[in-house]
């Protein structure tokens, strides 16, 4: 199937933006610019962009500790994301959250998370809210292959099924949880089958193919809007870097990483397709790479120059105070 040129270019640009963001932020983390470090999503761009390109900007997402790609694809400006990584006052969480706690609740980003498995439940609750209030939206909950071994994930899936909630569960399955290969800790070794066991449409898809991710998400969204309830999507992908910046474990081979990078890279695949279809010229592509690099450079500059949060605010906003503040 040929790709719509406009959609294709924007999709590719977003994946390039994420890749450049992550590789830049990785280096900055090694230079001590990102307090607490970060989880690099390089290699997983097609999952984020494929899902988000099928959503309405008003749809809700809730995600994981590895969420820069989801967040950028959801539309948060990269300078705001970068500033949050730097824990600057101009970041989306005012520097309180850093890499793991990116959020923009107003615009449907219900947060990254420090707790594995928490995102699906929060998205499920948002889907319930959408249904209760009669809105025409969906919620998407992201979870990792490691996170699908938390009980809370399945409690949420079950609830979404019985209440027919407009929820899409996306397993951003990069096949490792820290240093643990998915097969070693996944009984039955078939995550989509687990989903199916709860009685909802459940698929394993190629998470390196941005169009496939987009198509499955669109279909899931249509079902959800038609009142048919949730969908479970296990998107197979791969992370190129360590679990967190600096991690260089011996748990996988360099050949395995090189194989995924050279044969299944989501950006290479999609750009090659667009070029072969004539939707994109090599010159366009290079211009796109350069413009993305410039955007990230400006984001770093913005983050560098932004002020730190005011330490006198550490007690602000713990609660609304409406029930009576402690004197």
């Amino acid at each position: 199937m040929t790709t719509d040129s406009k959609w294709g270019k924007e999709t590719l640009r977003q994946m390039l933006l994420i890749r450049n963001f992550e590789e830049t932020a990785d280096k900055l983390t090694l230079r001590g610019k990102v307090p607490g470090g970060m989880h690099n999503s390089s290699g997983q761009e097609a999952v984020a962009v494929g899902v988000m390109s099928a959503l309405d900007p008003k749809d809700v997402i809730a995600t994981t500790h590895r969420s820069h790609h989801h967040t950028i694809a959801k539309g948060m400006p990269v300078n705001i994301v970068m500033a949050e990584l730097f824990t600057k006052a101009t970041g989306c969480s005012g520097g309180r959250g850093a890499s793991m706690h990116l959020a923009d609740v107003e615009n449907g980003h219900f947060g990254g998370n420090g707790i594995v498995g928490a995102g699906v439940g929060i998205a499920m609750g948002a889907a319930l809210g959408i249904k209760q209030m009669g809105h025409k939206k969906v919620a998407v909950g992201f979870v990792g292959d490691g996170g699908v071994n938390t009980g809370r994930t399945w409690e949420a899936v079950n609830m979404a099924v019985i209440y027919k909630l407009p929820l899409i569960i996306i397993v951003d399955n990069n096949q490792y949880a820290v240093e643990t290969f998915v097969e070693r800790v996944t009984g039955g070794n078939d995550i989509a089958k687990r989903g199916a066991g709860f009685g909802l449409p459940s698929f394993t898809i190629d998470g390196q193919d941005v169009e496939e991710v987009h198509k499955h998400t669109s279909e899931a969204r249509n079902r959800a809007l038609a009142g048919e309830g949730p969908t479970f999507i296990n998107a197979l992908t791969y992370r190129y870097y360590g679990h967190n910046v600096g991690e260089k474990g011996q748990y996988r081979t360099q050949e395995e990483i090189a194989d995924w990078r050279s044969h299944r890279d989501p950006i290479d695949r999609f750009s090659a397709k667009l070029i072969s279809e004539g939707a994109l010229t090599q010159a366009d592509y290079e211009a796109m790479i350069n413009s993305v690099a410039k955007e990230i450079e400006e984001a770093v500059d913005f983050a560098e120059k932004s002020p730190l949060p005011d330490v006198s605010t550490i007690l602000d906003g713990v609660d609304s105070g409406l029930l009576g503040a402690r004197k």
């Binding site: 307090p35 607490g36 824990t87 520097g95 309180r96 959250g97 850093a98 890499s99 793991m100 706690h101 730190l308 949060p309 330490v311 605010t313 550490i314 007690l315 713990v318 402690r326």
Partner: peptide, 16 residues
């Protein structure tokens, strides 16, 4: 410590 969640920002965390 303050009765507040800890912030990721190191200065805020230290101050708490």
């Amino acid at each position: 410590a303050a009765r507040a969640p800890l912030s990721a920002n190191p200065q805020m965390s230290e101050a708490a």
